[in-house]
Computed example of a mutant assay.
Amino acid sequence: MTDDRERSWLVANVVDVDGWERWMPGVVAAEPGSGLAQLVAGARQVTWAWEARTGLRAQHVSREQFQVFHERLEVAEDLLYRAAELEPGWACPWYFLQMSGRGLQVGPDIARLRFEAAVRRSPLHLGAHQQQLQQVCRKWGGSHEEMHAFARESMLAAPEGSDLGVLVAIAHLEHWGDLDHGDDTAYMLRLQVEKELHEAADRSYRNAGYRDALDPVATLNVFAMAFALAGEKKAAAEAFAATGGLVTEFPWQYLNGNDPAAAYRALRSRSGRP
């Protein structure tokens, strides 16, 4: 496997499975020189930590949850740094260190260094860019302006046909989600938002060169939701059709955390798709 984007995608999906945290320590102990073992164990500690914290805003997370969250992330950091030492050419440990670092509040400078370490090894690593986008968004101490600038600059720096165009759509959804009811709808209906969404779609999944994305369904789900909220029914319907009915949890949990598929179906219907 030579594409670190693929390695990151595979590990991220594998460690979402419950139970890995129970037997991975034994694997690490048996194979202390295996970068892969350290990576998988560390990545599972990261996802396990975020499961303990939940996706709620900080004011709704208990002290006990935060304690477990931080303990698991500290274990993850040790494992992931060891993986990075054993496999210095891999971007994947740095990608997961971005996640643990945000949870441990390492600060914007260290977070930026971790992002840069990932993209030096894999310049078009979508996951690393998405983590940095979260780092600079308002809810994590950044700002809407910084977030939009990062998304656009990343898109324009990448070749046309890259999946980094989805960052622009994600940034608009993050901005929308940070606004009060009423203001959020008005924001998504702005002409500038419509224009930027179409530009991002044209540079990513609607571009003839778009063929190397690891998870195009995830990108299509983001654009389907963004176009639907922006009132762009035709573009939304096309994106929904291209998903083939496959629903990703992100970004639909922003509309319905208990049933993302219901949110998908509701907006798909409003966009004219059955």
Rank of each mutant, 00 (worst) to 15 (best):
F115S: 05
F115H: 09
E116S: 02
E116F: 01
E116P: 06
A117V: 06
A118R: 03
A118E: 02
A118I: 12
V119G: 13
V119A: 05
R120E: 13
R120V: 09
R121T: 00
S122P: 00
S122G: 05
P123S: 12
P123R: 14
L124D: 04
H125K: 09
H125Q: 14
G127F: 03
G127H: 04
G127D: 05
A128F: 10
A128N: 00
Q130E: 15
Q130R: 10
Q131R: 13
Q132H: 12
Q132P: 02
Q132A: 02
Q132C: 04
Q132G: 00
L133W: 11
L133F: 06
Q135T: 07
V136L: 09
V136K: 02
V136T: 04
V136P: 03
V136C: 03
V136M: 00
C137Y: 10
C137A: 10
C137S: 15
C137W: 06
C137D: 11
R138T: 05
R138Q: 15
R138Y: 11
K139Q: 14
K139C: 03
K139E: 11
W140I: 03
W140F: 15
W140M: 00
G142Y: 05
G142K: 09
S143F: 04
S143D: 01
S143W: 02
H144I: 02
H144K: 11
H144L: 06
H144W: 04
E146F: 09
E146D: 13
M147L: 06
M147E: 10
H148P: 04
H148L: 15
A149C: 13
A149T: 14
A149M: 14
F150G: 06
F150L: 11
A151K: 13
R152G: 03
R152N: 06
R152K: 11
R152I: 15
E153H: 05
E153S: 13
E153D: 13
S154T: 15
M155A: 02
